[in-house]
Amino acid sequence: MLYATPSLDPADQAVLAEIEDMRRDLKYRLAETHRWDGQLRRQLQARAIQGSNSIEGYRASVEDIESIMSGEEPLETSGSVAREIAGYQQALTYIQLLSRAPAFRYDTGLLNALNFMMIGHHRDKTPGVVRPGGIYIRDSVSGAVVYEGPDADLVPKLLDELIEWLNDGDLGVPSYVRAAMAHLNLVKVHPWRDGNGRMSRALQTLVLGRDQITTPEFCSIEEWLGQQRTTIAYYDVLGEVGRRQWSPHGDTLAWVRFCLRAHHMQAQRVRQRLAEAGEIWMLLEKQVDSDGLNTRTVSALYEVFVTRRLRRSRYQADESLSQGQAARDLRDLAAKGWLSPYGETKGRFYAPGPRMVEIKAEFAGRATPLRDPYVQAR
């Protein structure tokens, strides 16, 4: 028996309708190709990876995560955390491919494979293999047990039930609700020795991707969940709904409502970023043109605007340049006051220069505050 999908209240239906409106608007905007699309998608994926891993205590900057995603050594992140990031990025990349695969069915082998991608570097934790014994989740401060997973001998049957439900259960339920219930059931079964939280959040993203809500990086709520206050609320609602032991009964509406709120808030944020990306790009394009610089350098300036720093290799890859071309462009941008170089050789990076700092300051605080949909709906 799994945790059952709840019926939605009118307030939830209203929030869901608003999420759908934002989704349709997003799909419409993404249908038209823009120069900044690739960088925006990469940054959203990096932020999703950052959010999901920070919940587990693995913290890295978006800039370092982007470096890891491209196969480079991060500048600040430790090797152990970088391996966690790389594993999760590998799993999310596969989820992106699975979301578009013409032939697809969920199965236990797929879930085990995703778990192995995430934590395969922890061979002592038998990655990709269902746990052989019990599992206990402890409070990181007090050490007290806050959740005990189902007995190990029940896990294979529960996974089979979850797989059957993923393929054929509640197909008439809104995708956001199905994805939330997939997340809840997997995290409560806790079938592996490690990576269960990340796997559950990734499964939620996969369900949405398969239902063609939009591409995974645009529909994931992992970034939103990784914020400190939201993370606390996330654990609180999991404890409220799931209780201290495997107990698949009772009302799960509080969990679904939490996820709907997260989707609404993250959708507002993504919509703002998409609108801001176009405005920033056009502004930078005008500045580059007036300085007599090559138009391609706008991608370097945009990267520095939305993150803290840029490495030459990133710009080189984005614009398909030779090492010499990329280095010359960045030197020109530094000479014009757009960038400030730091470090040497492999550790060299470019941060915002005086002119970029000025433009960033003009944009700071311009974003409209996000609206809690349930405050408005009730």
Rank of each mutant, 00 (worst) to 15 (best):
G38M: 00
N53D: 09
G38L: 02
A17H: 02
Y28L: 13
S67R: 15
P10W: 01
D64C: 11
L8M: 02
H34N: 09
E56V: 09
G38T: 06
I65R: 10
T33P: 09
V62C: 15
R35Y: 12
Q13S: 10
Q50W: 03
Q39T: 03
D12S: 05
K27Y: 05
G57Y: 15
Q50A: 03
Q39S: 10
T5R: 04
L44R: 10
E18S: 12
R23A: 09
L40N: 05
S67C: 12
L30H: 05
I68D: 07
L2M: 05
I55C: 06
M1S: 13
A17K: 05
D9P: 07
A60N: 08
I49R: 03
R42P: 01
D9C: 07
Q13K: 04
M1Q: 10
Q50K: 15
R35P: 11
G51V: 00
D21H: 03
L8I: 00
D25T: 14
L16K: 04
R59L: 06
D21F: 08
Y3Q: 02
E18V: 08
R23I: 12
R24H: 11
V62K: 13
L44S: 07
D25A: 15
K27R: 12
L16S: 04
H34G: 03
A60Y: 09
R35W: 04
I19D: 06
P6G: 00
E66L: 14
R29F: 08
Q50P: 08
A17I: 02
M69P: 01
V62L: 15
G57T: 13
S7F: 09
E56S: 09
L44P: 04
Q43D: 06
A48T: 15
A17M: 09
R47T: 12
S61I: 06
I49N: 11
I49S: 06
S70N: 13
E63K: 00
S67L: 15
S54E: 08
H34R: 14
R29E: 13
S54R: 04
